[in-house]
Simulated scan of single mutants.
Amino acid sequence: MSPKDYLLALVVVVAWGVNFVVIKVGLHGVPPMLLGALRFALAAVPAVFFVKRPRVPLRWLFAYALTISFGQFAFLFSAMYVGMPAGLASLVLQAQAFFTLAFAWLFLREPLRPRTILGLVVAAAGLALIGAQGGHSMTLAGFVMTLCAAASWALGNIVTKKIGRVDLVGLVVWASLIPPLPFLALSYALEGPQRIATALAGIGLTSIGAILYLAFIATLIGYSLWSRLLSRYSAGQVAPFSLLVPVVGLASALLLLGEQLSAIQYGGAALVMLGLIINVSGAWFAQRVSRLRS
């Protein structure tokens, strides 16, 4: 990977890691369902007029939009609204990697390798430690909803596998047209028209900045750069960078929001990261060991 592309990968990691702090800030002025509607409306318009629609059947476009976009962020925004810390959210959301493997085994009959099972067990132990600390710096409801967000993301990954090779930027932009409607419907039902009107009438520069960041930097720029890297290099070269997202998420939450974790939560976070490393880098490590022996 060239130095320029290493830099681009780090830009994506920082953009996605800080994303969780930005969500927390955005939720201070805008309720979660309305925030989701605004995020995806801006991600779709005006980009949809300049990005070609991907050659994807409508049913798969809707399936992608309702899982990886609407489902994931409806749960994530709600989780953070009811007390899930930004740093822990960035970490627990990475459980999507293991949900994806489980769903791929269940729906696509893809085999589960020993390293995958080992990584899953280690990460599950870490999540159990974090969940057991429900009364320390987070709510149990927030933790459970973050896991639901991870499961929704994983279902979206399965949909992406079924779609096959496609322009990821076009898929993200055109799929962003769909979530605003269910987000607005939930906002009307759960948050109420009065709260929507109050939030929009009193929206401040901080909330506007958060929405712009979520729509343009985290969504459009992040996915554009990530898809560029995936088009140039193998998934094995690019995927390990995603391990840095929760590192940036935890660090930025500590520095910008002053979030503190208990010793047990730090231990759980370390186990989750170890499980992810085993899953992502296990094949590379096994190949290196095999070469050394031969």
Results as ranks from 00 to 15, higher is better:
160 T>Q: 13
105 W>R: 09
52 K>W: 01
69 S>E: 14
155 L>K: 08
111 P>Q: 05
116 T>Q: 15
58 L>I: 08
129 L>D: 12
64 Y>W: 04
100 T>G: 07
70 F>P: 12
82 V>R: 10
128 A>E: 00
90 S>E: 05
55 R>W: 00
130 I>H: 11
153 W>Q: 14
58 L>N: 12
166 V>D: 09
129 L>E: 10
69 S>R: 00
120 L>Q: 01
83 G>W: 11
75 F>K: 11
113 R>M: 10
115 R>K: 15
84 M>C: 05
151 A>T: 03
99 F>D: 03
107 F>D: 01
118 L>T: 14
83 G>T: 08
135 G>I: 06
145 M>C: 02
47 A>H: 09
97 A>T: 14
111 P>A: 02
160 T>H: 11
148 C>W: 09
100 T>H: 08
152 S>V: 00
93 L>D: 12
98 F>V: 03
49 F>Y: 09
117 I>V: 15
93 L>H: 13
131 G>Q: 01
128 A>V: 10
119 G>E: 02
142 G>T: 06
102 A>K: 05
138 M>A: 03
125 A>P: 00
65 A>S: 13
157 N>P: 02
51 V>W: 13
48 V>M: 05
64 Y>V: 01
94 Q>I: 05
144 V>T: 11
134 G>C: 04
118 L>E: 07
137 S>C: 00
123 A>C: 08
117 I>W: 06
76 L>M: 13
60 W>R: 15
112 L>S: 03
69 S>L: 15
127 L>G: 07
143 F>P: 07
83 G>D: 07
50 F>Q: 08
82 V>L: 05
110 E>H: 04
82 V>S: 07
76 L>H: 10
106 L>R: 01
142 G>I: 05
108 L>C: 05
83 G>K: 10
146 T>V: 13
116 T>C: 00
57 P>W: 01
154 A>H: 10
141 A>M: 06
66 L>A: 09
92 V>R: 06
138 M>I: 03
72 Q>H: 14
103 F>A: 11
121 V>A: 15
74 A>N: 07
56 V>C: 04
99 F>R: 07
162 K>N: 02
106 L>E: 01
138 M>S: 03
137 S>Q: 14
133 Q>C: 12
123 A>S: 15
135 G>S: 12
50 F>K: 11
50 F>I: 04
125 A>T: 14
61 L>F: 03
133 Q>F: 06
114 P>N: 02
172 V>I: 15
161 K>N: 01
102 A>W: 03
149 A>E: 02
99 F>G: 04
52 K>F: 02
82 V>N: 08
153 W>Y: 15
107 F>V: 04
144 V>Q: 07
168 L>S: 13
171 L>C: 07
54 P>Y: 06
110 E>W: 02
148 C>Q: 11
85 P>E: 09
165 R>N: 04
100 T>Y: 05
57 P>S: 02
72 Q>S: 08
92 V>E: 01
114 P>Q: 02
